Amino acid sequence: MNDNELYPIGDAARRSGLSVSAVRFYADAGIVEPAHLSGAGHRLYDVDAIARLELVRTLRDLDTDLDEIRRLLEGDTTLHNLLTTHLEIVERQERTLRARRAVLRTLIRQGGTTAQADLMHKLVSMTDEEREQTIDDFWNDVGEGLDVPDGFVDRLRAMRPILPADPTAAQLEAWIELADLVRDPAFRDAVRTYLHETYTTDEWQAMATEPMQEFIYESGGPLVEAVLAAYRAGESPRSPWAQAVVTRFMEAVTAVSADTALTPEIRNRMADAYRRLPDIERQIAEEDAASEDPVYDDTHGRYLSLVTVVNGTGPEEDTLPYAWIADAMRAPDDGA
């Protein structure tokens, strides 16, 4: 286009991607006026006016308000500020639509009622403080009268959902399910019963103590990761690297669980236990499936799995290499 040339309204419309009626409307509204009127009263547009029309078309495609566009073209704001403000609006709309989609998908899946729709809308609209209080109320109720070592319930309470500022639909759906569950008295009773029946036995009572819980959730993590790193690197279970990391892990476990030194006999017992773990896990799963009492996957396990989805952490994908660990655990003078 020639910078000095004037174009009739039809050409201006074609070059800007607008209809003639839209170009005429923006002129009458004082948004983009023609550069010149011919003697016959025809509207003529120069290159600058056509460029402004193109900008108006783009901003209107983004649902930008006409008054905002007028302020921009009159120099009362900058394009950067206008686009930044509009982006914030679009992102708020996106979050709202995502929340609605999560509610609708959950209602469709559950065959929900009007009352459930109202409840789910309230759940996704909760403030951070309201979500925190919902989880605290759950653990306060579950922990009431639970015969476990001091601090155990607080350790469980620390595993809590933290919905991000910009959650995905899956995170919102998980939060809806979790919030609905923790408010349900039947679910609270089931979790309390499972924890009571599990952690009042002699074997599991020790697992609930503060030292063991600290090891499981904090200090033990790096030790387990060091063992897995050796395995992933293709090390032999009897290599110096594997022996060093597995021995450190076993020493820590023995110190916490038995408060004693690691001996060859303890090493071999732990190795035998690790080799049997897959069979034990399968047996527990079969017993849980046949049980009429509350079980892990339906109670505390369900709570934790939903928390991992809400938090975006997800479960560990690695399956523990039980046989490799068992071989590494065995005392050096026993099959080394």
Rank of each mutant, 00 (worst) to 15 (best):
E177D: 15
A233C: 07
P167K: 07
D272P: 00
T85R: 15
I325S: 07
T78W: 04
G151D: 09
A290L: 00
R275T: 12
L146Q: 08
R98F: 07
L304Y: 14
D48L: 06
R57D: 13
D28F: 03
S257K: 02
R276W: 04
W241G: 12
W139C: 05
G145P: 06
Q171Y: 06
A102Y: 01
T198W: 04
L72P: 00
I162G: 11
R160K: 14
A115D: 12
S19Y: 02
A35V: 00
R109H: 08
P211Y: 02
R95G: 12
T106W: 04
E235C: 08
E33A: 13
D128G: 11
M126G: 09
V295R: 02
R52C: 04
R282L: 09
R15F: 08
D3N: 09
R248G: 14
V310E: 04
R155F: 11
V227H: 02
E316N: 13
F25L: 12
V256Y: 00
T319K: 06
L320D: 04
D67C: 03
V124F: 06
A35N: 01
R192S: 14
S219P: 01
E251C: 03
T319P: 04
A190M: 01
L97C: 07
Q116P: 01
P161S: 05
M120H: 14
T193C: 10
M159K: 09
Y217V: 14
A99S: 15
R131L: 01
